[in-house]
Amino acid sequence: MDELAIQIILGISVASVPLIFAAIGELVVERSGVLNLGVEGMMIMGAIIGLVVQYHTGSGLLSVIAAMAAGMLMASIFAFLTQLFLTNHVATGLALTLFGLGVAAFIGKNYSDITVTRISALHIPWFSDLPVIGSLVFGYDPLFYLAILMVFLVWWFLFKTKRGLILRAIGDNHDAAHAIGHQVIRYRVLAILFGGGMAGIGGAYLSLVQVPMWVEGMSAGRGWIAIALVVFASWQPFKVIVGALIFGGISILQLHAQAFGVYIPAQYLSMLPYLMTIIVLVSLRIGSKSNTNRTMPNCLGKVFHSTS
């Protein structure tokens, strides 16, 4: 395999990691019946906080944890408003996104001209030195492996544990779950916090691995793509990886098309991921109407009143 192909595959993988993080978090949130459109805002907060902590401490671990905490803090605002004050999920989520973008830009003012140390790829003795396989399988940064692990953990939690079953049940019919005596709000708040943490790490990946510096608005719509990805994956964890690779692939294609001398204006290529999102969502609906309905949580986005 030639060097370029390896480069492209590596590039696709790296491009898809933030999407996997954000989408797997949102998947759990939506499975519990909550629609959080604030993913973009939580991601960018993760990106800036991760970068700031990395700049001051130089510790990759610490900055990823800080980014996660930032995402969770953002998510807790959403949880507080939607679960305790019963505000509308869509409006609150949109507000969260705008809020996050604004705050991140504000914090980022002082960090605009600096670069930080990139979280580097793991070097596993012997394995990483293998030809081709070495760089394709063992040549990534630790967060890449964490992303894959999270997908597996979420799948295991949702489909192999009782608590996962309860979470899915709450998303399917919160009134029934409440009637049986399950704590709808507690599960949802925890799910939202998990979603926030994952989005935060996904954001940190942008500013600590992909481009180790701060660029205003660097999440560049990835939060929205992550939300679309959840639908694309029809709320199935493993399909998130497939979807993320496709979207990651398109954004890499966009870079390499120019290198190959394909003369399409850059703007058209930058439209591609978003255009793809729309096409995928529409064709999913047309392709299998009943199938998508079956897996979509019935209570998605509905406000739960615990009084009755």
């Binding site: 049940a169 399917d172 029934a176 779950a177 049986i180 019935n298």
Partner: peptide, 12 residues
């Protein structure tokens, strides 16, 4: 009924 439509009988 307090049943969950998307889940199986056993899960319910």
């Amino acid at each position: 009924f307090s049943l969950f439509e998307s889940l199986t009988v056993a899960e319910n």
